[in-house]
């Protein structure tokens, strides 16, 4: 990896720049693959484990010198098996988050940004064997805190940007069907009482750890990333867990503003 970076940077011809000041907007699209765990006690009391893929599009716009806006759209597809490996759970999730960060510490090469985001997530877990409860739908709107650490490492006078971002949901609303309610009762017969619940730390814990390395190669920027996503809820005596470790690769388009 080091050889690749040195080679890439030496060929890129990039000059030393203040990435935060001049990189007015970054758009990154990444593709990932990794391990997944799905658990939803509406479908099964057990954790299903397997693999999945993720597509992530991220746009960061610098609105002012210290204020940035980040928009992330992600699509997750996962296929998992029960402990006995005779049943599949398939998971499909789409999420969008809209965050604002303020640069609370601006060092030469190290920056700390802190902010908040509003996010929406929808999707479902589908169990291939269950009869009247084959599916558990997910819908979640939440407000989160977000911490971002950015560090620019100079290699051959080209910036290699390392970033860690942690996002912690604080409060929101989600779809939470009552313990034994069937989808027939809720959606065929229209009994939607108690299907929406306020969520916070008492019934939901989510954390996203996102690490990226942006490596300039010629006129392009390669992104390598790692995403650790943990989402667990416990409401109406139904426990849900969506857990993934994903390695990502993508590219970054950089738009400079004068």
């Amino acid at each position: 990896m080091g050889i690749l970076i040195l080679f890439a940077c030496s060929q890129s011809g990039l000059t030393q720049i203040d990435t935060l000041a001049l990189r007015a907007m970054d758009e990154a699209t990444s593709f990932g693959f990794g391990s997944y765990q799905l658990k939803d006690t509406y479908l099964s009391p057990f954790i299903y484990q397997g693999w999945g893929g993720r597509i992530l599009n991220e746009r960061v716009t610098w609105l002012q010198s210290k204020l940035s806006r980040q928009r992330i759209i992600g699509v997750d597809l996962a296929t998992t098996k029960n402990p006995a490996e005779n049943v599949n759970d398939f998971g499909i999730f789409v999420d969008y988050s809209h965050a604002y960060h303020y640069n609370v510490f601006n060092g030469n090469d190290f920056n700390i940004l802190f902010g908040a985001s509003a996010s929406i997530m929808g999707g479902f877990i589908y169990n291939t064997r269950n009869g009247n409860n084959p599916l558990s739908a997910k819908a979640d709107v939440s407000l989160s805190l977000s911490l971002m650490l950015m560090y620019t490492l100079w290699i051959n006078e080209a910036p290699v940007t390392l970033r860690y971002q942690g996002m912690l949901p604080v409060a929101g609303l989600f779809f939470a069907p009552p313990y034994g309610a069937s989808y027939y009762e809720m959606f065929n017969e229209g009994n939607l009482s108690d299907v929406l619940a306020f969520n916070s730390f008492h019934n939901k814990l989510g954390l996203t750890n996102y690490v990226t390395i942006d490596i300039p190669i010629y006129t392009q920027t390669l992104r390598l990333g790692y995403l650790y996503s943990y989402y667990t809820t416990d409401v109406h005596s139904i426990q849900t867990r969506i857990f993934s470790n994903t390695l990502l690769i993508g590219w970054v388009k950089e738009f400079y503003l004068k």
């Binding site: 057990f46 006995a84 049943v87 064997r129 009869g131 009247n132 409860n133 034994g180």
Partner: peptide, 19 residues
């Protein structure tokens, strides 16, 4: 009883009246 489905640790399927 409207039946739902779950399972045992050995992978056996269990259906039961729920509603």
């Amino acid at each position: 009883g409207f039946p739902l489905t779950s399972e045992l640790p050995n992978g056996w399927r269990v259906r039961f009246s729920s509603s």
